[in-house]
Computed example of a mutant assay.
Amino acid sequence: MIDGQPAEAAPSPSRSVLQHEWQAFWLAVGFLTRIPMLARIDYSQKLMNQCSMYFPVVGLLLGALYAGLFALLGLAWSPLVGVLLVLCFHLFITGAFHEDGLADSVDALGGGYTVEKRLEIMKDSRIGTYGTVALVMALLLKVALLTEANHIWLALLVAPAVSRLTPLLLMATLTYVTDPDKSKSKPVADGFSNARLAIAAAFVLALCILLSFWHPLLIISSLTAVLLVALSWGVYLRSQLGGYTGDALGASVVFSELVLLMLL
Rank of each mutant, 00 (worst) to 15 (best):
H215R: 06
G128L: 12
L211T: 02
L165M: 13
V253T: 10
L135E: 05
L211M: 09
A248F: 09
S212C: 12
F255C: 10
L168A: 13
C88S: 15
S232Y: 14
A67T: 07
M122T: 10
I220R: 01
T245V: 10
G30L: 02
A159M: 08
T132Y: 11
F92K: 14
P36N: 12
P216M: 02
F97T: 04
T173K: 03
L237I: 03
G111T: 05
L211I: 05
G74D: 03
V133M: 15
P6L: 14
V86E: 02
I93W: 08
H151L: 09
L18M: 02
L174F: 09
A172G: 15
L73F: 14
A7G: 12
I127S: 15
G74T: 05
S221Q: 06
Q45D: 14
K186R: 03
L156T: 05
K117G: 03
D179C: 02
L69E: 07
S12P: 13
I219W: 06
D181M: 07
V115L: 10
L145N: 00
Q23P: 05
W214M: 08
A159V: 06
T33L: 04
I35G: 04
V177W: 01
V188Y: 02
V188M: 10
Y54S: 02
D104N: 12
S239T: 13
I209C: 12
S44M: 14
V143N: 06
A28C: 09
L241K: 04
L217D: 00
L146Y: 02
E21I: 03
F25I: 07
A24L: 08
F55L: 10
S163N: 07
M262P: 01
H215I: 05
D3E: 14
V177Q: 02
G250L: 14
L47C: 06
P36M: 11
L258H: 07
G4R: 04
L135G: 09
C88T: 15
R238P: 00
Y244L: 11
S185I: 08
F31C: 00
M37G: 00
R196N: 12
